[in-house]
Write a protein that binds this DNA or RNA. Structure first.
Length: 200
DNA sequence: AGACGGATTGCCT
DNA sequence: GGCAATCCGTCTA
């Protein structure tokens, strides 16, 4: 895993560092282009009201997965971080597909590569992540985290308010790779991404 | 014990 | 743009 990736860091510190890191499950996945931070002090977080069976992974050791069912339909993947009891985690919202495109297409019936992993529920489907992944260590198979190629410049970042929440709506804890065509939704003010969208 | 609603997506009009 | 699908923690009684 990338040496600079410190899962003991707070969620809002780790979340931007994850942009550009490659996330694989059984060799299938891509480059993380969109994340969101949550922690126990945050009214928008599942952990805000304390530990429950559903969110228990958020209160356990860092560098494990927190996988929950969204709207009774989709699975969403979080990377637990911070100190024990923080209730901190980073939601992975989108990947730029790079590994195992064929398998991802087989799991998701979309032709457009851009839609393979553009959204928290979509990427878990593409990587075949479900509830059985809850609590799994991130630094062991089937997970794999790969640093960007050595010497590669850090990706330019964009930030904004988080998606789909009703509380703490102004906290800018959504992070993305500037100009990426693979984010779940455009970032306000990301001119490069807007231009890329209009271009095609 | 029962109602409510969500860190979403995809299909319908 | 609207809305169904469908699970479960949380809130109210």
């Amino acid at each position: 895993m990338p040496a600079e990736l410190d899962f003991s860091a707070p969620a809002h510190v780790l979340a931007p560092l994850l942009i550009g890191v490659t996330l694989l499950v059984d060799g299938v996945g891509g480059r993380i282009v969109e994340t969101e931070a949550y922690d126990g002090t945050d009214p928008a977080s599942h952990s805000f009201r304390g530990r429950t069976p559903r969110n228990a992974a958020m209160f356990g050791p860092a560098a494990r997965a927190y996988v929950y069912r969204s709207y009774g339909v989709h699975w969403c993947l979080n990377l637990v971080c911070g100190q024990m009891g923080d209730g901190a985690a980073v939601l992975i919202r989108a990947l730029a597909p790079t590994h195992g495109l064929e398998q991802m297409h087989a799991r998701r019936s979309v032709q457009d590569e851009r839609l393979l992993c553009a959204g928290p529920g979509r990427l878990t489907q593409a990587l075949a992540i479900d509830g059985s992944f809850d609590h799994l260590p991130l630094l062991e198979p089937p997970f794999e985290l790969l640093a960007p190629p050595g010497g590669a410049p850090a990706p330019a970042l964009v930030t904004g308010p988080r998606i789909g929440i009703t509380r703490a709506v102004d906290v800018p804890w959504r992070f993305g790779e500037a100009g990426s065509r693979y984010v779940s939704r455009p970032f306000p003010g990301d001119a490069a991404a807007g231009a890329a969208l209009r271009r095609r």
